[in-house]
Design a protein around this nucleic acid. Structure first.
Lengths: 216, 216
DNA sequence: TAATAAAATTGTCAACTGTCCTATTTTGGA
DNA sequence: TCCAAAATAGGACAGTTGACAATTTTATTA
């Protein structure tokens, strides 16, 4: 039913320092399994015992690798968010292309990612958590800052006349616009099948704003 | 610190049928308190005992009014979402005004609501819950359907030439665009103070899309 | 005011939670 | 091959959770 999950970029773990390879693999399995439960059943279902059981290991072993639940959650979110940072950092800026074309490709990639199961399920959890957890808040918005950076650059190229603050505001709006699609046209959302159409509308309108925005 | 909460429209409870007035008041207190905990501390903190304690009542009494936690959550979300439906249903369509002006006012109201603490905190919780709870999913998207309806109407007035599907897609994009602001410029979010500026950009761009959208 | 339905209290239950501690087994390098 | 470190297992702990039953108190109205 589901597409083949792209395991490679699901999580970006910090490199291992000390310890055996076995332990590192186990920690990877743990975080991957925790992420799976988070996506499939939500944050509430992601208990220590539930994770251990799904990993086929004992609770004692889980708490050996992650002494507290908070440790585990932090590492998990860190690894997940890092993988997104890499993903967006790897977006080829394709120098030589017109800025409009680069804007189109960038937004296209982001919006298509929003349609994926992982992103549709994960980010609402992150948003909810961020409202009551300073660590999550910091980490999530750090990610968004980085994801917005290339957008700001393109806007600067297209509109060198614009004050920096206005560029930032426009980039912020474009970024928020796309994120908002998650709830409506994300994976298994009521308008999932309209995502391509809405993507088209979105990108056209983004180009229009950047081209025609005039400071107050 | 916080603004005075507008208690009147926070919750819309179903009218009481049978039972004493006392009981009805108690149920109202329960839902109001549960909502407060949900907003201030998140879904995970909203346990039966926590709610009962915050109400100054015993757990037994809470389970008398709401036998299971699921009952309570359903009633709570139903009451909260109903109040939003009333709020948006009450938006005066101001006949006689230009459609552009009506679009501006409607979006302005919605975006300003997104800046409120209640909305900023509540909706991410709803989005996360909706991903793993069919009831929440249904109820949330029912709300969004209703909130989009006046938008579709205005677009129809401005663009009678447009096929219905295109109007719906445009309304969907505008609606999603605004919701996306929650995470970035909502209450206590990093760009909360940019909300007015972004609101301005958003509305200008919305008017532009509606005016100039051309089917593929 | 008395009768009675509703509301609220109190105590209990099994299941689950995160954390900790102590064996035991496994691993990989000397 | 041996051995110390690492990994895993197993059990125990106190606290929390949702649900429920028996009981007492309160509110409403006949």
């Amino acid at each position: 039913m589901d597409a083949i999950p792209k395991l490679v970029t699901d999580l970006l773990m910090p490199g291992r320092e000390g310890g055996y390879a076995k332990g590192y693999e186990t920690r990877e399995l743990i975080l991957r399994t925790a992420l799976h439960i988070l996506i499939e059943e939500g944050y509430r279902a992601m208990s220590m015992r539930r994770i251990a059981a799904a990993c086929g290991m004992r609770l004692g072993n889980l708490t050996y690798h992650y002494p507290t639940r908070e440790d585990l959650v932090r590492e998990l979110l860190n690894a997940v968010i890092s993988s997104y940072e890499v993903e967006f950092g790897a977006i080829v800026q394709a120098p030589g292309l017109e800025p409009e074309e680069r804007l189109t490709r960038l937004c296209s990639l982001i919006i298509e990612d929003i349609g994926s199961k992982k992103t549709t399920r994960l980010f609402p959890e992150l948003w909810a958590l961020a409202n009551h957890d300073a660590f999550v808040y910091e980490r999530v918005h750090e990610l968004y800052d980085r994801a917005r950076a290339p957008l700001v650059e393109i806007i600067a190229e297209m509109r060198p006349d614009l004050p920096e603050q206005d560029r930032l505001d426009v980039a912020l709006f474009i970024s928020a616009s796309m994120e908002g699609l998650t709830v409506f046209a994300g994976y298994e959302m009521p308008f999932a099948q309209r995502l391509p159409a809405v993507e088209h509308i979105a990108i056209r309108s983004f180009i229009d704003i950047v081209r025609s925005f005039q400071p107050a």
